[in-house]
């Protein structure tokens, strides 16, 4: 939060990352939440503090997991590609995948699992249709490097890029209801063209989607 609110539980400041604030707004109070790729638990901390959720996390980086658990958060070391299969149907109200979809081995399967174990899914991802990405590829002929995509092609964890339009197509194909969606700029602010898919596909650096099962 921009005003630097301190979490009373841990005494550390709540994250001021705007994309996390936007996700938190979509979560119902006192619901059951799973945050996949939760890092050190910054989003879980916000959700526990402001929404009083029953929050769990999965994180692949061991150091981050240890930090999260040492903060008293319920986080397991695990992998979105393999570990979601072990949760029962409908175990959560909301399953969150923030800026991680493009790094999964099988993003379509991960989405299907999210909407199996959760009633709703919140997904955010870097938009490969963003105009600076397009321009960089067009003018340099090389893989684009932006603030959201800042690693060289040979050592990036991001292996499955998509655009906002691509993501709409996948949701239609697999029968997910897009309850809400937002184009988000590089500061994590809502972009003014959020009502127009084609403009968002060009001007939003990230896409943020709230999905549910049909």
């Amino acid at each position: 939060m921009a005003d630097g609110t301190i979490a009373p539980r841990t005494g550390r400041p709540l994250s001021d990352r705007l994309d996390l604030r936007l996700i938190a707004e979509m979560v119902e109070p006192r619901s059951r939440v799973l945050d996949i790729g939760c890092g050190d638990g910054a989003l879980l901390e916000i959700l526990l503090h402001e929404k009083e959720v029953d929050g769990r996390g999965i994180e692949i980086d061991m150091g981050e997991v240890a930090r999260a658990v040492a903060q008293g958060l319920s986080v397991i070391h695990g992998d979105a590609d393999t570990d979601l299969a072990f949760y029962p149907d409908g175990a959560f109200d909301t399953v969150i995948l923030s800026r991680t979809l493009q790094a999964t081995e099988r993003p379509r399967e991960v989405l299907a699992q999210m909407l199996r174990i959760g009633r709703r899914a919140i997904v955010s991802f870097p938009n490969f249709g963003y105009w600076t990405v397009r321009l960089a590829l067009l003018t340099t002929g090389r893989m684009p490097r932006t603030s959201a995509l800042d690693r060289a092609w040979y050592d990036t964890p991001n292996i499955h890029f998509c655009t906002i339009s691509d993501f709409f197509d996948l949701c239609a194909m697999d029968g997910y209801v897009v309850e809400r969606w937002l184009g988000v700029d590089d500061e994590g602010q809502r972009t003014p063209w959020r009502r127009n898919r084609r403009l968002a596909n060009l001007f939003a650096e990230q896409g943020l989607f709230l999905l549910s099962r049909r």
Partner: peptide
């Protein structure tokens, strides 16, 4: 064990320490 606890919808943390 953790997977079984998840399947049982139990509240579980899991840390593998280096």
């Amino acid at each position: 064990l953790v997977r079984a606890l998840n399947a049982a919808a139990a509240n579980v943390s899991f840390v593998e320490i280096t």
